[in-house]
Nucleic acid binder design. Structure first.
Lengths: 225, 225
DNA sequence: CCTCGATGATCAGAATACGCATGGGGTGCC
DNA sequence: GGCACCCCATGCGTATTCTGATCATCGAGG
C-alpha cells in the first residue's frame, strides 16, 4: 500500500514511517499542512495518516479540502484531543477513523490496513485499461495495442460500462439501465446490435477477442475463454 | 443504510437500535451469536455492529466466519476490553473498526456512517463457497479446488440454489419453483437430467462427491455421507 | 437371500430459445 | 437537404433445454 503521513513532529513521523515500511508499505511524508495538501492532491495513495494539529493548514481542513475535491482516499486522523466531540468532528469532516495519542503502533497498523483493504479502488478514474485496450475518458478516445479505434457515442458508453465491469458478467438489464437509461425492456435486439458493431471495431482485427457472450446471462469483457 | 446489531445485552441493543433508527437507518437485531451469524450470512447489510462477548458464538468468531465466507460487510466491534492487544485482535479478525465500552452514541454513529460511506457501492454478496467449491456470481464462474468448471445457464442456477441451501435437503418442488419457476409438476424427469449433468461436471473428477441424493426427498449439497 | 416394484440415473434426438449479422427507415443536427 | 447515428425487423445458425426410452439401484417383504 502507498501511504501518506502528514505530521509535523519529526520524531513521531519518522517512527511511524519506519514501522509502516517494515510492514511492507510505501510511505511518503509531509511535515506541514501545505506540503501535505499538495501531495494528497497530486499523488495517489491507498491511505493517509493525518495529524490533527498542524502548522499552516490544519488537519481537519486538509481532510475537508480533499473530500471536497472528490478524493475518497481513506484517512486516519491522529490527535492528542480525545474528547468525544473532537472525535465526532474528525469523522464528520470526512475522516474514516480517529486515533488518540499516545497510541500503540500495532493498533495504528491494524487500523490503517483495515481502511486500505476496503478501498483499493476509489479515485475518479480518467483512464480505463483492460488488457491491451485503453480508454481515455477525458479525450474520449479508445485504442487497442496503440491502434486508434473510432466509436460512436453509444458505443463509447457501452464499452465504458463493459470496461468498468471487466471480468464480471454484465446483464442486458444492467446495460439498458446504465447505458440507455431505459427502465423497461424494449423487446428488441437493440443491445445485440450495438454489441455486434462494437465487436467489429474492438475485436475484429485482433487475435484475442475481449467481448464474450455469456449465453442466457449477458456479456463480459475479459481476456480468455 | 441497513445495519445489523449483534448484542446480548437487551438494553444496550435497544438503545443502539433506537438511535440508529432515528438517524434514518434500518436495523435488525440479534441477541446471541447463533442468530447473529444466521442473519449475517442470509441477509444483506451495509454495516454490522458486533459485541465482542456473546453467549454461544463469540463476536470475533462471527467476524472471522463471515469473512471466510467472502462477505466483506463492514463490521464495528464493540467491547469492554480496551487493551491494545484486544483491539489489534479485533481488527485482525477482520473487523473494520473497534470501539470500547462505554462509548458515546454520537461517536458510534459517526464511525458506522464512516464505514458505510466507504462501501455503499459494495457488491451484494458476490461469492458462494461450499467446501472446495466456489462460485463467483458476478463473473458467473465456478471452480473446484482451483479448477474451472464450465456450466450452462440452467446448471448454474441449479448449482447456485444448491449452494445457497448447502447442508439442507432441497426437494424437487423447491427446485421447480425456484430454479425453473414452474408452479406445477412437469411429470418428466427434468430435474434428474440436470442433476446428472451437474454431477458430471462438479463431482466426476473429484474424490469427494458433493451432490447427494436423498431418496424419496430430494438432493443435498454437502461434504460426506 | 432373492424378487419385485419404485425411484433415480443416463443417453440421444427433437424442440426450442437465443444470439448474430445485415439492411432499411426514422430522427435530429449541421 | 444531407449526414450521422440510432433503432427495429428479419432470417439464419447454433447452443441449450427438454422429452421419452432404457438401464441401474434401492429397499421392503416373502
Amino acid at each position: 500500500m502507498r501511504i501518506l503521513i502528514i505530521e509535523d513532529d519529526q520524531e513521531a513521523s519518522a517512527y511511524l514511517a519506519k514501522g509502516l515500511k517494515e510492514a511492507g508499505h510505501t510511505v511518503d511524508q509531509a511535515g506541514n499542512g501545505t506540503d501535505g495538501l499538495f501531495l494528497a492532491t497530486t499523488e495517489r495513495y491507498d491511505a493517509m495518516v493525518v495529524d490533527r494539529m498542524l502548522p499552516g493548514v490544519d488537519g481537519l481542513t486538509i481532510v475537508q479540502t480533499i473530500r471536497g475535491a472528490g478524493n475518497t482516499t481513506p484517512v486516519l486522523i491522529l490527535s492528542a484531543l480525545g474528547k468525544v466531540d473532537d472525535r465526532v468532528k474528525g469523522l464528520k469532516a470526512g475522516g474514516d477513523d480517529y486515533l488518540v495519542k499516545p497510541y500503540a503502533f500495532a493498533e495504528l497498523l491494524a487500523r490503517i490496513e483495515a481502511l486500505g483493504r476496503r478501498t483499493s479502488a476509489s479515485q475518479p478514474e480518467t483512464r480505463l485499461k483492460v488488457e491491451d485496450l485503453e480508454m481515455d475518458l477525458l479525450a474520449r478516445t479508445v485504442n487497442r495495442s496503440g491502434q486508434d479505434i473510432d466509436l460512436q457515442p453509444r458505443e463509447f458508453r457501452l464499452l465504458e460500462y463493459l470496461m468498468r465491469h471487466a471480468g464480471q458478467v454484465v446483464t442486458r438489464t444492467m446495460l439498458l439501465e446504465n447505458v440507455w437509461e431505459y427502465h423497461f425492456d424494449p423487446q428488441t435486439n437493440l443491445i445485440d446490435v450495438h454489441i455486434s458493431r462494437l465487436r467489429q471495431k474492438v475485436d475484429k482485427d485482433f487475435d484475442q477477442p475481449l467481448i464474450h457472450t455469456v449465453r442466457g446471462a449477458g456479456y463480459t469483457l475479459r481476456a480468455q475463454r
